[in-house]
Amino acid sequence: MKHSVVLTVNGEEYVLAIDPHRTLAEVLREELRLTGTKIGCGTGDCGACTVLLDGRAVSSCLTLAVEADGRRVVTVEGLAPSGEQLHPIQQAFIEKGAIQCGFCTPGMEMSTLALLQGNPHPTEEEIRAGLAGNLCRCTGYNKIVEAVATAAGAMAEEPMNTAADGASDGDQGRPCALWPPVG
């Protein structure tokens, strides 16, 4: 039996009829066409599917979409403040060469956002602990850790609204999703 589910994704509200065995990752990718969220292992080990759910980093491959009903989701598509401007986290990942194949990057960036929202000035050890649930098979992690530190510095200098901020109280401004809802 399909369940009626209301998801707020990157500030946009979606009303969906969803089978209960579908994960949030599948629904984001296949129903909303928000394919920035990647599905890697599917068992909560690799972190590629990390999104923020009510402000906290979760594995969307181990979240039932029905259990996200009425909750706020932020995906990597909600990170950039506009279509022309990157988020400091994204900018730092590019500048530091923290991206190779890119498959882990959306999850890395969402874990980074969650980390920096709770701890704006993490030590290297805290960065490594904060990203412990995200695997990268290309870069060897050092550049990613450097990128997170760089992003922390940039965000401290110039705090920036993201969809996460915009969605937190619902009336702080325009929703920030880059892609309009599809289908």
């Binding site: 909560g44 980093a57 181990l62 874990s111």
Partner: peptide, 9 residues
């Protein structure tokens, strides 16, 4: 226990 994501869930 687990990863940050696992601990949030």
């Amino acid at each position: 226990t687990g990863t940050p994501q696992v601990r949030n869930m």
